[in-house]
C-alpha cells in the first residue's frame, strides 16, 4: 500500500479585497487545483515548484495542518485532517524557515520534552539521541538555548528533534535554506543514510535543485497548484526542448566541426561545444566525432535542471510516469 496517496486534492482560500471605500470584494483563490499522486514506502521524492505554486499548502494538507477543500488524502493509511494527532506519531515535519524547538530551552531540554510528548520509550530515546548527536555533531550544542544556535546548528537540532520518535514519513520543507556548502553537504549525507538504512519515506520541498539531484530519484514539479511533472530525474532532463552538450578538445584549433544531429554553439581555441536534443542518443554523435576528427578529450554535459524546469513552466504541459 502506498505511504501517501492523494486524489484530486484541492484547496481554495477566500481573499477579501478592498474595492472602493466601503465595498469589499470577495475573491476565491485556488492554491491547490486537483493534485493526484502516490508515494511508496521508502521513496525519497523531490517536490519543487516556483513560489506560490502550492507546495507548502499541499504539504500542510498532508500533515493535517490545513483541511482540504475537496479531494482525498491518505497518509500512512489515515486522513490527516481527521486524525491529525494520531498521524503526528507516525510523521516528522521540518519547516526550514521556522523551528519546532523551544526557543528559550536548551537543546537537550527540547529533546527530552519531545521524547515525553511522543511517548518515546526511554531506551529507544537514549539510543536515538546518541545516534543523532553523533551523526549530526550536536554534542557541543546540547546545553545551549536554541535561540543561541546558528541557522545550520538549529536545522540539525530540528532534524534530530523530528526523528526522535522514528517517524515513517519525513516531510522536509526547505531544509537547506540559508545553509552554507559544508552544512548542506552534511545534511544531504545524513538524509541519504537515513533513507537507505531506516527506509524512511521522505518528501522534500526545496528551491535548491542540488538537494534533489543528489538525493531523489523521483521528482514532482507543481505549478499553479497542478502537477506538471512526475517522473525520474533522468526523465526530467529529457523533457522536450532540453539539450545536452558535448564538449570536445581537438588536437588543434580549427573550423567548427560538422556532425549530423548536433550543432556547434561555441568555439574557443581547440575546444568546441556541440548541443543536441536531450532525448537523442549521444552515441552516434560521439562516434562521428571520433572517426572524423583528432580528439584529445570529450565529455557530455547533462542539461541543468534549472533550465529544464524553466522550460517546463514555460510549456505548461504535464508529464507523468505511467
Amino acid at each position: 500500500m502506498a505511504m501517501i496517496e492523494v486524489e484530486d486534492l484541492r484547496r481554495t482560500f477566500v481573499v477579501r479585497t478592498k474595492s472602493g471605500t466601503l465595498r469589499r470584494g470577495r475573491q476565491e483563490i485556488l492554491a491547490v487545483a486537483g493534485l493526484s499522486f502516490a508515494i511508496e514506502p521508502g521513496e525519497m521524492v523531490g517536490y519543487i515548484g516556483p513560489n506560490g505554486a502550492g507546495k507548502s499548502t499541499s504539504i500542510k494538507m498532508l500533515t493535517g495542518i490545513l483541511v482540504p477543500t475537496s479531494g482525498s488524502v491518505q497518509v500512512a493509511g489515515m486522513d490527516p485532517s481527521r486524525r491529525r494527532t494520531d498521524l503526528a506519531r507516525r510523521i516528522g515535519v521540518v519547516f526550514g524557515q521556522r523551528s519546532g524547538l523551544w526557543w528559550d530551552l536548551p537543546l537537550r531540554d527540547s529533546f527530552d520534552l519531545l521524547a515525553r510528548i511522543y511517548d518515546v520509550p526511554r531506551p529507544r530515546y537514549t539510543t536515538n539521541l546518541a545516534a543523532y548527536v553523533d551523526l549530526l555533531d550536536l554534542g557541543p550544542l546540547l546545553d545551549q538555548p536554541v535561540r543561541q544556535l546558528s541557522l545550520g546548528q538549529r536545522m540539525r537540532g530540528d532534524l534530530a528533534a523530528t526523528l526522535l520518535h522514528d517517524p515513517q514519513i519525513l516531510f522536509l520543507d526547505e531544509p537547506t535554506i540559508g545553509l552554507d556548502v559544508v552544512s548542506k553537504t552534511r545534511l544531504r549525507e545524513f538524509l541519504r543514510d537515513l533513507n537507505a538504512e531506516r527506509g524512511t519515506t521522505v518528501l522534500l520541498t526545496t528551491h535548491d535543485l542540488g538537494d534533489i539531484e543528489q538525493l531523489c530519484r523521483r521528482v514532482m514539479v507543481i505549478d499553479a497548484g497542478r502537477m506538471v511533472f512526475d517522473d525520474t530525474i533522468a526523465a526530467l532532463q529529457r523533457v522536450g526542448g532540453a539539450t545536452r552538450t558535448v564538449v570536445v578538445d581537438l588536437e588543434r584549433p580549427g573550423e567548427p566541426v560538422v556532425v549530423p544531429g548536433a550543432v556547434v554553439t561555441r568555439v574557443e581555441g581547440a575546444r568546441q561545444w556541440l548541443t543536441f536534443p536531450a532525448d537523442a542518443s549521444a552515441a552516434p554523435i560521439v562516434s562521428a566525432l571520433a572517426s572524423g576528427y583528432d580528439l584529445v578529450d570529450l565529455s557530455i554535459q547533462e542539461p541543468a535542471i534549472e533550465d529544464v524546469i524553466r522550460l517546463l513552466y514555460a510549456r505548461g504541459g504535464a508529464h507523468k510516469a505511467d
Partner: peptide, 23 residues
C-alpha cells in the same frame, strides 16, 4: 502569525493543551 502554531499542529498533543502549557 510567526507560524509556530503549525509546529504544534503536527505534534501528537491537542493544540489547545500546547498553547496553554507553552511558557
Amino acid at each position: 502569525r510567526d507560524g509556530s502554531f503549525d509546529a504544534m499542529l503536527v505534534r501528537p498533543v491537542a493544540p489547545l493543551v500546547q498553547v496553554a502549557a507553552d511558557q
